[in-house]
Design a protein around this nucleic acid. Structure first.
Lengths: 194, 194
DNA sequence: TGTACATCAGTGAACGCGCGTTCACTGATGTAC
DNA sequence: TGTACATCAGTGAACGCGCGTTCACTGATGTAC
């Protein structure tokens, strides 16, 4: 792990900016000039970092996948200290208002933020999306101490992402809470059956 | 119900085309010239039917909401004749490979097809989306003979749409089946607890 | 240590293209007498 | 029933604008001797 060059630092900053934009505004909303401007650069330099816009999208999704875990990890840690089981803690954190807010700001789970857009993107994005889902399912299985099988893990992924997405589309705050807590309750009761 | 004018017939055809495009390719992918061409017209005439592109998107989503039920209704009917309970039949049809295919062709449930895009669109779309979710939840409650409360109906909506979305993002056919059948199993067991 | 030159990272003007929108026009349908 | 005119539904050329991409250039950093 040698010191990163100036260019590598800039590259990371562009990625970080792009990862936020695609999660907050969607793939189509990302403009080359816009990303560069938000990263404090001018648009011309973009092609020294990426061959084209498509390549940035793929790298940005990968970056989002690798870093979005952090937001939730903090909340999980807090619960673990209180003796809550790891998987239950994760479910609780994923379905929290804090994660909902993070999503709106482009810092939440990319599967929830972009779930319905993956299938319309270039192959590279579809592959990254597939990988993100695998990683997500693997993490849930690991948190369950391997008591969860793959099919059930996929169910959990779909229920978690579906709930966050639906909650974001409800205007009434009471219904948002109802959707989140109802999902939390059902998933925990399934998970606690060991 | 008087005879529709020629213009009204054309208007419907544009809507039908647009409803398919937005569900198959997303809101951003809909181009005015493209819709008109697919509807057998030239782009110039568009503005005699809609004030602008945004207005078409809203009307098209409304149209999608009103008509997407048909695809599933057929499958539900078949099961009802075999004595399956209405809500169970609906869940089974919604999580079928047939519905997955319909989604890919722009004829499936708009909430599953566009779930992660609603929150980034104009207010009119957000309202239509909110309404589509309400209608969806109401339908599930009606099918359950009102044994389902609103919070649980919202959970079902999120789990159903989440599962279809996730299934569409999995490449491995075995995992697609695993995701769908695992969700089916869990939801039915929740629903059958009456 | 100082000078000359090469490389690096980023700038900003310019391009081509697609898309939403406008508008003058046309051919077909309907209405008045 | 036939003629004259108005309205309707759609056509296609043209516009302005934004966006992805290219490229000649610049100032800063590093290297050779």
């Amino acid at each position: 792990m040698t010191n990163p060059t100036k260019k590598e630092v800039t590259h990371q900053r562009i990625l970080e900016t792009a990862a936020r934009i695609i999660r907050r505004d969607g793939f189509d909303a990302l403009g080359v000039a816009d990303v560069m401007k938000q990263a404090g650069l001018t648009h011309g330099g973009f092609y020294a970092h990426f061959p084209n816009r498509d390549a940035l999208l793929v790298e940005a999704l990968d970056y989002a996948k690798r870093t979005s875990a952090n937001t939730i990890a903090v909340a999980v840690m807090q619960q673990l200290e209180q003796g809550v089981k790891p998987l239950a803690a994760y479910i609780d954190a994923y379905l929290s208002e804090a994660h909902l807010k993070a999503c709106a700001e482009g810092e939440g789970c990319p599967v929830a933020a972009l779930g319905s857009e993956f299938s319309r993107q270039q192959d590279g994005i579809k592959q990254e999306a597939g990988n993100a889902i695998q990683v997500f399912a693997d993490k849930l299985m690991a948190l369950s101490n391997q008591t969860l099988n793959r099919a059930d893990a996929l169910f959990l992924v779909s229920a978690l992402t579906g709930a966050v997405q639906l909650a974001r589309n409800l205007e009434d705050p009471q219904e948002v809470t109802a959707c989140l807590s109802s999902t939390k309750q059902h998933l925990l009761s399934i998970v606690n059956r060991d």
